[in-house]
């Protein structure tokens, strides 16, 4: 069963109606700057229910795993901005750091001895964390969409 909306969208596309906004195209092109060459992608860990868990304070928790590293992220949305606290374990060791990335802003943090880190005031939208370890390929979480 073909959905009428698909027909209509295709007809509008063919007619040049409802074109892609310029800022959407521009954002897509700029996304290339977010490429992390050679990175291993950490996917969300299998859980009985494949979705984020919501904490009492409205925070969301999600776990990513790859290349022997586990990322536990807790994301809180408040006042329209995003705060992220997280832990990478086992501790990736001396000289490791994380980049907490959004399309418009990347914040870099050294990891504590416990592998923990925190950033505040990120814009809502797509978010990813990259862990850089000396002597190893970077590990990057899948991009997740965080909106209030």
């Amino acid at each position: 069963m073909i959905n009428d909306e698909y027909f209509l969208a295709a007809l509008r596309l063919a007619a040049g109606n409802d074109p892609i906004p310029g800022h959407v195209s521009a954002a897509a092109r700029e996304a290339y700057d977010l490429r992390v060459p050679g990175a291993v992608t950490a996917d969300p860990a299998e859980r009985p229910v494949a979705r984020a868990e919501r904490g009492e304070n409205g925070s969301h928790s999600v776990r990513f795993v790859a290349a022997g590293l586990t990322f536990d992220l807790e994301v809180t949305v408040g006042d329209g901005l995003i705060d992220v606290t997280g832990q990478v374990f086992p501790n990736p060791g001396e000289g490791a750091h994380v980049d907490v990335r959004t399309p418009h802003l990347t914040l870099t943090r050294r990891l504590a001895d416990t592998g923990e880190f925190a950033v505040t005031g990120l814009p809502p939208g797509w978010l990813s964390v990259v862990c850089h370890r000396p002597g190893h390929a970077p590990v990057q979480t899948r991009w997740v969409r965080i909106r209030p």
Binding site: P21, V24, A28, A31, Y32, R35, W126, Q140, W143, R145
Partner: peptide
């Protein structure tokens, strides 16, 4: 339009990976 922009942007980010 806002959510469609997110879906398109998210797809490009997936392609990057």
């Amino acid at each position: 339009a806002t959510d469609a922009a997110d879906a398109v942007q998210g797809t490009w980010l997936r392609l990057l990976q």
